[in-house]
Write a protein that binds this DNA or RNA. Structure first.
Lengths: 262, 262
DNA sequence: GCTTGCCTTGACGTAGCGTCAAGGTCGTTG
DNA sequence: CAACGACCTTGACGCTACGTCAAGGCAAGC
């Protein structure tokens, strides 16, 4: 017969744990020897092994008790359920590992992949870091508030826009003009190129989607609270808006049409 | 800017959790709006996402705080460590699944596979269940007390003995004689066959190993406390012992030589 | 005989939140 | 404009599954 320490060591738990299971009624109190020590038999080894296996699978102890008292069929069903939970947990851990791999990158951590990739490209193309950060932050807030909408928006145009080098180049040039004066000749040039790019786009609902997404009053406050307007961008915005109306492009709403300029 | 509920929903935790992280200093208290509500920015989204990822990987929150305050290199090292822990956890879960599969079988749960298989064979061959159970229980106790020794003993002779159909057949016949009278002719026959089988064995250290394993005083008390001697087995034991000395077989110690007869 | 280690019961401590309680506020709806 | 439900605030207590002393008795080896 085994002492509590020998039993505990064999199944890989502490003596405190065994006594705790006694107090819960999970494991019956065994008989005592002359000096009052608990003495365990093979049956206890088996029962404790079962408890420990289930507990280490994360099954709440109350549930473990239920399972051990249940009939053969109910027990088997319960164990099958536990097994399914473990498989789910393994999938969760697998997904978690890929999240951990992105833990040092704020973009990948809080944004859909398409956007994170686009922002990284923009950053690497030489756009000023401080403004790229602000740009990213506004997207993070938008995504946090309207995950479904942002995702839907991105899905519809991921290939046409956010991975289009031409579009990303326009963004970079815009960000580079952050601290330029409003009458910098590059502003006018960028406005013209932006309009050209828009004209080349097949689907004009791109802009409408954007308008729909940010027609919300609160969303606008969020974006503008993060985003800073500079003289050059104000001018750029004016020029693009004017050009669009001239060419009959863009949304019918009076919303600011160019994502690049929020 | 986000309210606490919006923030919590986005990263997939409760508002209570966010406030708890504030109280631990993991996430800085953000500024409040006019009515005293907390308002969160993109930075908070990123930081909370990091905390939640690490916490859901099982990292203690104190350690999470250390990691977030640490330098880039220390952070990367810490995350790598966490990743290794996750891989270890996945291996643990995989092993646990196979344990769960054996949860309904006391033998496989508490005994090395070789023994469990042998006992199952013996049981299926028609040995009386009650005595097979006692037989198994004594092995479980022995294994619980001396896991390393039992394992070593089994490794040395697993192929030669415990998977030898002839040996297992002797065990079955022995168990079938549990309630037979001492002068049952099958007892003498079994003794003779047992001696023949022993003579056919190449390595006689099989028996010596067994003697070594159970030369311990306490071990003997354990085995005999579980195991019940019947008239037929007493007689069988006598016959085999006498035969062995006659043929000069077995261990030199005065130990009971046949595992089947404990 | 003395030390070292295991056993006994009992009580308090811990992590990571969940869950009221008792209010104030926001946004929509009648 | 009043009311309603859904949010926000702080505070405090509860929960699970044990860990960790505390204070003492017993066992086994030198």
């Amino acid at each position: 017969m085994l002492t509590i320490g020998e039993l505990a060591a064999f199944v890989g738990v502490s003596t405190r744990t065994v006594r705790f299971y006694h107090s819960l009624g999970l494991l019956p109190e065994p008989s005592r020897d002359a000096s009052g020590y608990r003495r365990y038999g093979a049956e206890d080894v088996v029962r404790l092994s079962r408890i420990v296996a289930l507990a280490s699978a994360g099954v709440p102890l109350v549930r473990v008790g239920e399972l051990l008292e249940a009939g053969e069929q109910a027990f088997a069903d319960g164990v099958a359920e536990v097994d399914a939970d473990i498989r789910a947990e393994m999938r969760r851990l697998k997904a978690l590992r890929s999240t951990l791999a992105d833990l040092d990158s704020p973009d990948r951590l809080a944004l859909p992949r398409v956007l994170a990739d686009a922002i990284e490209t923009i950053r690497r193309a030489g756009a000023p870091g401080r403004y790229v950060d602000l740009y990213r932050d506004s997207w993070i807030l938008a995504h946090a508030l309207y995950p479904a909408e942002v995702r839907r928006y991105l899905e519809r145009q991921s290939t046409s826009t956010w991975s289009d080098p031409a579009y990303l180049d326009l963004q970079v040039r815009m960000l580079l003009l952050a601290e330029a004066p409003a009458d910098d000749p590059r502003v006018a040039q960028l406005a013209a190129d932006t309009l050209d790019w828009m004209a080349g786009q097949e689907q004009e609902d791109t802009l409408e989607d954007y308008g729909e997404l940010f027609s919300d009053e609160r969303a606008n406050r969020i974006m503008t609270a993060q985003w800073i307007m500079t003289p050059a961008w104000d001018r750029l915005s004016e020029l693009v808006l004017a050009g669009m109306q001239e060419r009959g492009l863009g949304p019918s709403t009076p919303e600011d049409p160019d994502p690049a300029q929020r």
